[in-house]
Amino acid sequence: MAAGAASGGSAVTDTYKDARTWLLLPAWLTLTILVAAPVFMMLIYSFLTKEFRGGVIWEFSLAAYDQFFFDRGLFGDDPAKIEWTYILIFWRSIWQAGAATILSLVIGFPTAYFIATRPEKSRPLWVFLITIPYWVNLLIRTVSMKFLLRDQGPLNDFLINIGLIDSPIHIVNTNFAVQLGLFYSYLPFMVLPIYAAVERYNFSLSEAAADLYATKATTLRRILLPAVKPGVIAGCILVFVPSMGSFLAPDLLGGAKNFMIGSLIEEQFKGNAGNWPFGAAASMILMSMVLVLLMFYARQQAKSEKAEG
């Protein structure tokens, strides 16, 4: 991560300087073919005319963006008002992804701290344990989650058996289930960068703080957190961004009653709507939002590095 490079200090002698072009070629090719080209294609598609039942007509059109931002009523001939439908869908996605990120942070930070403070020899084992559930396909993990949470599932059975509740709590098909599913899907992306940051943290700083009569809370707030901030931010981005575009958890755990951005876009390509330009436009808007977020992060990062000197 950027943080690693920053703390790594001054420029390193490049042993493989002469081969640099060739070493980078696979990465460049992959990025061009699998990232830049599809994104560019989507950008163009978002400005084309929709073909009935999927496909595009090669004529310039702003209809997709118009549909996103303006509401012309059920029949399309009312005077244009601001369209809240898609803003609502985006807002819901941001909210769900945000909740999942906070949940991941609250549980991931202590976990990462715990791992980083184990003896050096046993740390790889703990990291390894974190990754084990992720050897299983995401779809299967999400479905299993549903089986665990359902009304007649083990979780509710357990809570009823120990007498904590009388009737099952409905978790499946709620927003909370979606947040839980997202949290579970992306937790390691929170734990690993924070672990990397905490592992590099010089614990004698905490001792020094204690010697100077700082409380444990103050040490955490003023010493540890600022030092590992880049890891925390990286973790938050790695959880938040994929959560926003996710459609497995909303469909399977949320009951697909309400579109999230991911399912809205999927519907445009695979569903009845068959509106490719609109799907492309929604993807573009989503991507712009993520880009703004990342640029904001990059600027903050640059600023703090400057401040540190």
Partner: peptide
């Protein structure tokens, strides 16, 4: 047809928004 379908698509989006 296309014009009619557009209204049904809108109804479906309204349902799932």
């Amino acid at each position: 047809d296309e014009a009619t379908q557009a209204v049904y698509d809108q109804i479906w989006t309204n349902l799932k928004k």
